[in-house]
Design a protein around this nucleic acid. Structure first.
Lengths: 116, 116
DNA sequence: CTCGATTGTTACGCAACCGATATAGAGCAC
DNA sequence: GTGCTCTATATCGGTTGCGTAACAATCGAG
């Protein structure tokens, strides 16, 4: 089953949800950082710096810096890969899970409030 | 008619759309800037600095600076309100309209691609 | 064991953003 | 006109992000 959405609905949904995010936002998140966060929480582990960089089509230092920020906020955590110690595994945190969950709630609620 | 969305669907939709945005993004947009952009293009004019600041719950200098950036990218334009010259009216541009339209397309397409 | 390849991080110079405060211009009441 | 209010912008110091390039640690083939 595919979900049918008209452009006007889609844009309003995006607008409303982003507005909720901005209101929640104590953090000053970047679109890139948000993208990394969602990738880590929605796609299957393991997540490495290189892997995420490829997925977003950005350079590795961008990911490293974003992980610094997200780590400071305790939204993700870093761990060395014991199998290949060159790798860094990006891991989920309780705080990050709650944050992402809240994002989902925003969108679900805003979708329900959409006019026909 | 309200639109029903499960949390998992909503989050995936957000993730996919944001990913598209990051890929498109030559600009390094902030969540706040994105929020301003969508507000200007989705809500009824006129838009003033003060009005948008209230809507986003941020201070006016934040809006002024964001308009500097968005203006540099030609995504919005500024104009003095002839009726009350204290006001600045935030106006849409062709480039901005195309950008927002593309955002809508991203989301519509991603919604269609959602698994059941 | 050695050497090249791979991974993530750091360093550097630069630009943008932030919050807070101060300022300039315009309206409005009287 | 005189004050007072309102709007947006300018300015300040500090923080953060970016791209490029160099770097240390690790792996793996030979």
């Amino acid at each position: 089953m595919s979900l049918h959405l008209r452009p006007g609905q889609a844009l309003k949904l995006w607008h409303d949800s982003v507005l909720d995010l901005v209101h929640l936002d104590e953090s000053g998140l970047t679109v890139r950082q948000l993208s990394i966060l969602l990738t880590v929480y929605l796609e299957l582990p393991p997540h490495t710096v290189r892997g995420v960089a490829q997925k977003l089509k950005v350079t590795k230092p961008v990911i490293t810096r974003a992980l610094d920020s997200l780590g400071r906020l305790e939204l993700v955590a870093r761990r060395r890969d014991p199998a290949d110690k060159r790798n860094v595994l990006i891991q989920r945190t309780v705080k990050g899970a709650l944050f992402v969950e809240k994002l989902g709630d925003f969108m679900v609620n805003r979708a329900q409030m959409l006019p026909s």
